[in-house]
């Protein structure tokens, strides 16, 4: 039986191995993904993003417990950073989720960013597909701790929760562009700390400044203490309300189209790059281009166009 067939029968080991093959960029992973793709699209994907130390992992642990109580199977993808110097990583998000380790209805996978800059790893969407094929009802994706501009999660998750903590800065922070624009739900975690009400007020004020057309989703701010489980029921309720809104408003169609476009274009770009590198290898193009650039007889712009023209058989200048 192939890995993908085993995944579709609920085989945890096979799923874990397929995820590794995806993460390690094995050509076999693509073959397996083709086999499961048609059987995915059933899971609801929730994104949890926010700065390092905001309590994302603890929140994921609480959300997992809550969805398990409702009888849902939960997959978790938790992302931590790769060292730019050694390529190594310490993936420590599981520490907060250990109570679910022996629950057959929960599958937790840690991924390292491996150089990706948008808050996710390159493999995240495909790993989520495997969890979907494995029969998970809910998939929670926890991004690496983000600053202001890592917003890939919004294209991967149906509902994105932005988690903040008190004392992150004054209210000008709240009107900057970036992660504060992408939340469907905002969470002020560690709400027992001083300044929580002020942070919640500033976020709410920022959200009210938006020009939300009638009938569009209006994000709200929720206060939680993930460590104690305070505010979790309300947060889960809001996530489900957002899901209902996506479906009843028909916005789900737009979301899926945009997500699929992103997924396809990412795969196409990766694939074109790989083919171009292999092509240049075969035709010994790279040393020739580098020699030409060294004596200024070739510029890199024309060289790139020539490679594309030779490889694909058409002139990029003509389109």
């Amino acid at each position: 039986m192939s890995l993908s067939e085993k995944v579709l029968t609920g085989d945890v080991r096979a799923a874990a191995r397929l995820m590794r093959d995806i993460d390690d960029n094995r050509p076999s992973a693509v073959t397996e993904l083709k086999q499961i793709y048609a059987r995915t699209g059933n899971a609801y994907i929730i994104g949890i993003t926010g700065p390092p130390g905001a309590g994302k992992s603890t929140l994921v642990d609480q959300l997992t417990a809550s969805f398990r109580k409702q009888g849902k199977k939960v997959g978790v993808v938790a992302i931590d950073p790769t060292s730019p110097f050694t390529g190594g990583a310490i993936l420590g998000d599981r520490i907060r989720m250990n109570r679910h380790a022996t629950d057959d209805g929960v599958f937790i996978r840690s991924l390292a960013t491996r150089g990706a800059l948008g808050g996710l790893s390159r493999s995240t969407s495909d790993v989520a597909l495997v969890l979907d094929a494995l029969g998970m009802d809910i998939i929670i994706i926890e991004t690496v701790g983000v600053g202001q501009d890592e917003v890939d999660i919004v294209k991967a998750a149906h509902t994105t929760c932005v988690v903040m903590v008190p004392g992150m800065g004054d209210d000008i922070q709240a009107i900057k562009a970036g992660i504060l624009e992408i939340g469907d739900v905002f969470v002020v975690n560690k709400a027992d700390r001083e300044g929580a009400d002020r942070t919640a007020r500033e976020l709410a004020a920022m959200l009210e400044m938006r020009d939300t057309p009638q009938g569009d989703w209006q994000p709200q701010v929720f206060k939680t203490e993930a460590q104690r489980g305070t505010g979790i029921d309300e947060l889960v309720g809001e996530i489900l309300t957002h899901r209902d809104h996506l479906f009843s408003s028909g916005l789900i169609e737009t979301f899926l189209r945009e997500r699929n476009e992103r997924h396809f274009v990412d795969i196409l770009r990766d694939s074109l790059y790989k083919h171009a590198m292999a092509f240049m290898d075969r035709t010994a193009t790279l040393p020739r281009v580098l020699d030409g650039m060294a004596d200024s007889s070739i510029d890199p712009y024309s060289a790139a166009e020539e490679v594309i023209a030779e490889m694909l058989g058409y002139d990029p200048q003509s389109v």
Binding site: R13, A16, S83, A89, I90, R94, N98, T102, R109, S110
Partner: peptide, 27 residues
């Protein structure tokens, strides 16, 4: 980490069952 490995650190007070389940899920 400094040797270039990906380390899944599961923390304190783990049962053998938790460790084995995590090892399999993390491949």
């Amino acid at each position: 980490r400094d040797a270039g490995f990906e380390v899944i650190y599961t923390g304190l007070h783990q049962t053998p069952e938790q460790i084995v389940s995590a090892a399999i899920q993390e491949d």
